[in-house]
Design a protein around this nucleic acid. Structure first.
Lengths: 219, 219
DNA sequence: ACCTGAACACCGTTCAAGT
DNA sequence: ACCTGAACACCGTTCAAGT
């Protein structure tokens, strides 16, 4: 049929590279991602990656964006089934779940959306929904910012898991109140989940107070 | 006086290494810190550092701890001049200020205190003060965790600074609500400071609601 | 005890060469 | 268009050698 010799199918694609990089970040951490190691995982040589990405950093940006894309934004859809508070709560839970599934990439994500499409879409959705709900634009901006602070902070590293699990690490003379801290490690998810829900509830309760003031001012 | 030849004064010390590393992290970022580069800054050869620290990671841990040590904890002192809410507010402001002065080390700090003394001291102080103020220990733990989430998240990266400042980056078809987002970059500190104060106030208002419930349960 | 140069097994990235 | 090997200027860390 064809006159010209068809080039064989390319070995790589941006998607294959991002998938492999995300897997490597998840299992072995950011520091384990080298272009040679990643290429080996994909069965090619190191420099091949540069046919698809300009730098290694751009690969990591793409991984970060693929994680942002997992965040559910449907609660901000126009049909308004949820009030702003419920929407914000459900979004925060989905946002944190997506990041906690890939905690090692959070430092990259937390630098802001930059030009990453999924990051910008997320910022667009929450800002638009808050303005639609009646928040003045400056407050809507603050809500987007403070929710990102809280969610990325909660996903960046476990609170409970950051404490040593050996009792000997806590000299009572130095740390009089940490006598039970060595128990945190074995209840890691429970402690972090409860702290997240407690903080999220407090944030939303506090924002509701401010919303009342805004609404009263508008009357 | 002395029989033995005095060894000449050591060229390095842990403190000198940590100070130089912190300066390098601040001015050029985590990625710029290599043992060779850091050693050159100190006028010695790369391997010399290994006489004072076991690994490069331990140097970065020490930098992180030196930043934690800058956080003011005096509001948690026993004299009880402040109620828990005021103390928590002032602590959060100091905590964020210390981290924002050295944002590039925050990813290391946010992994938790580990065995770092200043990190453990900070956790000890806030937990002890909340328990003293009447919070049940599990809630006091949650408060330590959620405050760390919020503060580290707010210091990890600027919200406003994470958005491109060129209008062309925001196609209205893709991001219908980000028409003004390119203006965020030029008001970076203002936007982030207001979001932090808004979030902190909301958190404390929300915690006050929960505190009332705890106090009512105890009656 | 503390610093050095040499060495090892790595890095990210470029580039000429192949198909 | 896409992949390769060779090369360049780096890495973190170890170690024998110096004082």
């Amino acid at each position: 049929m064809c006159r010209m010799a068809r080039p064989r199918k390319p070995l790589l694609s941006r998607d294959r590279i991002v998938d492999a990089a995300r897997a490597l970040v998840d299992t072995e951490g950011l520091a384990a991602v080298s272009t040679r190691r990643l290429a080996a995982e994909l069965g090619v040589s190191g420099p091949s990656l540069y046919n698809h990405f300009r730098t290694k950093d751009q690969i990591l940006e793409a991984v970060a964006d693929s994680v942002s894309a997992q965040v559910d934004l449907s609660m901000f859809d126009g049909n308004h089934e949820h009030d702003w508070r419920t929407a914000l709560h459900d979004w925060a839970v989905s946002y944190r779940a997506a990041l906690r599934a890939h905690p090692n990439i959070v430092p990259v994500l937390a630098q802001g959306p930059g030009h990453r499409p999924a990051g910008l879409r997320l910022a667009d959705a929450v800002f638009g929904a808050m303005v639609d709900a009646g928040w003045p634009p400056p407050q809507a901006t603050s809500i987007g910012a403070l929710m990102r602070y809280f969610v990325t902070g909660s996903a960046l590293g476990s609170f409970a898991g950051g404490f040593p699990d050996d009792e000997a690490a806590y000299d009572p003379a130095d740390y009089p109140h940490l006598g039970q801290a060595h128990l945190l490690a074995e209840r890691q998810d429970e402690v972090d989940d409860r702290a997240f829900e407690t903080g999220l509830t407090a944030l939303l309760d506090g924002l509701a107070v401010q919303y009342e003031q805004v609404a009263a001012g508008a009357r």
